[in-house]
Structures are given as structure tokens and as C-alpha cells.
Design a protein around this nucleic acid. Structure first.
Length: 339
DNA sequence: AACGCAATCAACCGCCACCGC
DNA sequence: TGCGGTGGCGGTTGATTGCGT
């Protein structure tokens, strides 16, 4: 027995929405709201659609302030940063991009961004597999033991590191060094997300819980307005992970002696993001687990670092310094606007 | 102009978590 | 506590559009 369908499939229209259906749905929701029940909505409105379909249509197209297409370079960078850090949590990524929907971002990533970033490497990988690689694809120690998402993210890590600093990439980079040219907000996003969510990643430093971590703001002063009642910023409260961070600006350390200042807008956004992430993680982490299980599973294969070393080395070496020198993680670099 | 292939994106599907009973 | 209904999410599909030959 399969589960009961959410609606009567036989009497439900599928496919593209007509302007009339759109108008009915939009008009109804603007007048009365959803009533907290999407399943019942189509009947009330008088359209033969599945409730889920109505929800999707509203969220992705009909609700106000939706943006379509025309992703900016900043949005590109944010999407990439977050994808690398947290994977395909499109709803979380979308939450950081006002007006964008998870579906839009997912499509954009799958059809464009991913190809921009991974296309060349995948080609190179294919060549390698076809020309004498000794790695058996069925071998459990190979790339195939990773989820696609994890592979992509690790590839992106390495590729971007290579672009920034081929020497570091060749020796197992510390992700705290990366990315070097994000804007300040993205930089903080990455730092907090990495600390919160990626500690099993062997590419990253793994500070113990008592270690003080300093986040360096690079040549910007956005953190110099940092405010924190205790002199520390609580980065998260997950047991066993980092729980306090001293933020050090380019020339100024935020301490209690700095006194109380109003938080900047950027810092408020930063904290809001952290709250979102914390909420997500605590939601996922059933009491004892400090990390999202899915995330952990993705990197289970790296528990045995010997098995992963070759992969890392290959990824690092695969990317030649010549190509790296012609790119950088800025608006004209990695993402290379090709229009 | 016609065809075939690739890219794009709207929409669907199925799974999972949450919530109320 | 278990179960069913619902919402939310990510993966996938398939129709449409664009482009090269």
C-alpha cells in the first residue's frame, strides 16, 4: 500500500497554469489568505488543481516581489558560497536572496552556475577516467562513494582554492583562507557557515571547543562596528563546537572595552543569518547530534583520511597554475560572466 | 527554411518532518 | 503513543525555446 495521494489525481489539471487560474488564485489569496490549508484551497477557489500545485504557483510566481532571471554577480557569489558551505539547501539559500525562490535558484544553479564552475573539471575528470586511471569506479574508496553534492562541493572548494592560491591548494588548504575576495557579508556568511556546519570536512581546520578563533576582516571596516554585550559573538550553541569567537578587524579587536555600540546593519544581517542557520541546525540535530546527519553522512567516507588523500591530491594537482593565474574570485573571475 | 540538439525553466513527484487528534 | 493530514523541500521530468548546422 502506498500512501494516499494528497488530491484526486484523476480530477486535477496538470501542466502550465492559465492566466485565468493565476488570476483566481492570486485574487483569492490576496483577499482571504491561504486559510492555513493549501489542500482545501483549490476547491474554495474553484480551480481543478492540486493544493500543492497551488502552493508552488503562489510561492514561485504569484506572490509579490518575486524576481525572475537576471541574477547579479553578487547573487551568483552568494549562491556559490552557500552551496559550497551547506549544499543543496535551496530554501536556506533562497532565504538569503530576497525575491528569489528556491526553485529559481535551484534551476539557475543546475543549468548555469554549476556548469560554469565545474564544467572544465568534469571534462578533465572524464579524460582521466578514460585514459589510464587506475581508480576503479566501483572501488569503494573512489569518488563514487561521495554523494554528487559532496563531490561538487569539494570540487568547488578545491577549484576556488586553486584559483586563489595554487600553492595552498596543493597542500590541503585551510578553508579559513578562502574565499579571499568575497564581499564582507558573504565573507562572514562563509565563515559562520563553515564553522557551524562543515567541521567534518577534512579540508577544514578543526579547532577544538576551547580554541579561540579569530575571524579576520580583510581590508574592510564592516566588522569594526561590531557590537557584542559580552565582548564575544556567540557563533552557535551546538555542543562540542566552537561557542565563542573574537572578531578582529583589520586593525581593531572587538572586546568588552570597546563599549556598547549599536550593531551595524551588516552585522544585524550577519546575526540574522546565524539565527537562521542555528534554527535550521538545531531543528535537524536531534538533541545529541551536533551536526546535520545528512551533512555528516556526506563526509563519512572521509573518516578514513587515507582513502581521501589521493582524491584530494588529484583534485589539487588537476588544476594547473596557469589557469589559476588568469582567474580570481571576484566579479570577473571564477564566475566569469560570459555574456 | 528545416532539422536536431542543447539549454532553460515551470511543474510534478515523492519523501520527510511536524502537528493535531 | 500512534496515525493521518499537511506543508515544505529537493530531485527530476518534460515542454518550450534558442541556437548551430
Amino acid at each position: 500500500m502506498g500512501r494516499a495521494p494528497c488530491c484526486d489525481k484523476a480530477n486535477v489539471k496538470k501542466g502550465p497554469w492559465s492566466p485565468e487560474e493565476d488570476a483566481k488564485l492570486k485574487d483569492y489569496i490576496e483577499r482571504y489568505g491561504t486559510g492555513g490549508n493549501w489542500i482545501a484551497l483549490p476547491q474554495k477557489i474553484g480551480i481543478k488543481r492540486c493544493g500543492k500545485s497551488c502552493r508552488l504557483r503562489w510561492l514561485n510566481y504569484l506572490r509579490p516581489n518575486i524576481k525572475h532571471g537576471g541574477f547579479s554577480e553578487e547573487e551568483d557569489n552568494i549562491i556559490c558560497s552557500l552551496y559550497i558551505s551547506i549544499g543543496s539547501r535551496w530554501s536556506i539559500i533562497a532565504a538569503q536572496l530576497p525575491g528569489r525562490t528556491d526553485n529559481d535558484i535551484k534551476n539557475y544553479w543546475n543549468t548555469r552556475l554549476k556548469k560554469k564552475l565545474l564544467g572544465r573539471r568534469k571534462q578533465s575528470h572524464a579524460n582521466r577516467l578514460g585514459t589510464g586511471s587506475t581508480q576503479d569506479p566501483k572501488d569503494g574508496n573512489g569518488l563514487e562513494t561521495l554523494s554528487n553534492s559532496a563531490i561538487e562541493r569539494l570540487q568547488l572548494h578545491m577549484q576556488l582554492q586553486s584559483l586563489e592560491n595554487p600553492n595552498i591548494a596543493n597542500h590541503g588548504a585551510n578553508l579559513a583562507m578562502w574565499p579571499c575576495k568575497l564581499n564582507p557579508i558573504q565573507e562572514k556568511m562563509m565563515q559562520s557557515l563553515q564553522l557551524l556546519n562543515e567541521s567534518p570536512n577534512p579540508l577544514m581546520m578543526q579547532p577544538d571547543s576551547s580554541q579561540k578563533v579569530e575571524l579576520y576582516a580583510q581590508s574592510n571596516n564592516c566588522l569594526q562596528q561590531a557590537y557584542s554585550p559580552s565582548g564575544n559573538i556567540m557563533i552557535n550553541q551546538v555542543p562540542g563546537s566552537i561557542n565563542a569567537i573574537n572578531i578582529v578587524g583589520s586593525s581593531m579587536q572587538v572586546t568588552e572595552s570597546e563599549g556598547i555600540k549599536q550593531p551595524s546593519m551588516e552585522l544585524q544581517q550577519f546575526w540574522a543569518l546565524q539565527a537562521d542557520i542555528d534554527q535550521f541546525l538545531s531543528h535537524k540535530a536531534a538533541n545529541s547530534a551536533s551536526l546535520d546527519q545528512t551533512q555528516t553522512n556526506e563526509f563519512d567516507c572521509f573518516k578514513d583520511m587515507d582513502g581521501a588523500k589521493d582524491i584530494m591530491t588529484w583534485w589539487s594537482n588537476e588544476f594547473d597554475a596557469n589557469s589559476a593565474s588568469s582567474n580570481s574570485w571576484d566579479s570577473n573571475g571564477v564566475l566569469g560572466r560570459d555574456q
